[in-house]
Design a protein around this nucleic acid. Structure first.
Length: 301
RNA sequence: CGCGGGGUGGAGCAGCUGGUAGCUUACCGGGCUCAUAACCCGGACGUCGUAGGUCCGAAUCCUACCCCCGCAA
């Protein structure tokens, strides 16, 4: 079975490695084009491209796919039996989807039909979902609307989106390997999505903490995406916080011990657990307190 | 050459207008206490990122390099 794999970020590395390790014939890897990234504005390859090069698999990084006849023809020439996609980051036109005889399957980081779109994992955390998971699915024309093959769940608990990313791509890889044989011989399940239950998971961005929101809401937001607030005129990132039941003026530090800083929210309070100042590394609050005096009454935001 | 912050005992910081290093915490020992994450006394732990240079003498000044991080993309 000839496979073409399409993916870009770290989430898509594991499945590629897993298939390669399992001995599948991956003819080509398609990843997003190199971009100048981070400080120094140097061109950097995405994780999947690096991985493919490491594994000795040819890589294509087309800027555009839609209307890119040269690229589409290249895929046709390879004549793959299956295309596997994981967080590729670009919409695949019908021209591509119709090429492989076994179709295109996608690994999506949510329990479809919930959280279709770009940031399913983060959105699930931000919305305070109790559980989330991975869905293996056939790709259709719409965004994450295709027929589902299988799902795997996991508890969200107090996990951050980052932690969930690691866990879910692990789960996704296993799910893929488990169903690949069935996909190959055409016996894989095929369940339609209930569109009436569908929700969207748009991209997430850095957020400034709004302390007037409830502690729970803020805690979920912090676990789901990069959050920051203003501390003594500096941008402080809050990487993790636990909910408390204190009260006071929203955004005000209401108690400080050697290992805790409690901030009042619109409803309830939050214990800052891991923070980061510009130029510094992220550190647990007790370490932070060793060299930084935070006083009760300090206002954040 | 995108902008900027930083590398000092295990951890977080100070010192940086030059004279071999300080604070908080952790750690070890002892004391107080019914007890303690509280308090008191004592102790160990540092080639101050690396390599050169200036100087009588550098963590502190100069040069190059390595590493970490924030912004912006």
């Amino acid at each position: 079975m000839k496979i073409v794999y399409m993916g870009t970020p770290s989430f898509a590395v594991k499945p590629l490695e897993a298939m390669h390790e399992a001995g599948y014939d991956i003819e080509l890897v398609v990843a997003k084009a190199d971009r100048p990234k981070d400080r120094g504005k140097k061109m950097q390859s995405c994780e999947v491209k690096c991985c493919a090069e490491r594994l000795g698999i040819p890589v294509e990084t087309p800027e555009k796919i839609k209307g890119n006849e040269e690229f589409i023809q290249k895929i046709r020439d390879i004549n793959p039996d299956l295309i596997v996609v994981a967080a590729y980051g670009k919409i695949l036109p019908l021209d591509i989807l119709e090429i492989p005889r076994l179709g295109c399957v996608n690994i999506h980081g949510s329990l479809l039909p919930k959280y279709r779109g770009a940031a399913p994992i983060q959105r699930a955390v931000i919305n305070g979902e109790k559980e989330t998971g991975v869905t293996l699915m056939y790709m259709g024309e719409g965004m994450d609307t295709g027929d589902m093959i299988a799902k795997a769940k996991t508890e969200v608990g107090e996990k951050t989106a980052d932690e969930l990313f690691v866990e879910l791509c692990e789960i996704g890889s296993k799910l893929l390997l488990e169903y690949l044989p069935m996909i190959e011989n055409g016996t894989a399940p095929r369940e339609k999505q209930d569109d009436s239950q569908a929700t969207l998971a748009p991209m997430v961005f850095k957020e400034d903490i709004d302390w007037t929101k409830s502690a729970h809401e803020i805690a979920c937001l912090i676990r789901g995406t990069e959050c920051r607030t203003l501390y003594k005129g500096e941008v402080m990132k809050v990487h993790f916080a636990k909910e408390g039941s204190g009260s006071g003026t929203a955004g005000t530090v209401i108690s400080v011990t050697k290992k805790d800083v409690e901030v009042a929210c619109g409803e309830g309070s939050l214990f800052l657990k891991n923070v980061q100042l510009p130029g510094k590394k992220a550190m647990d609050i007790d370490a932070f307190l060793l060299g930084n005096k935070i006083e009760v009454g300090t206002v954040l935001g």
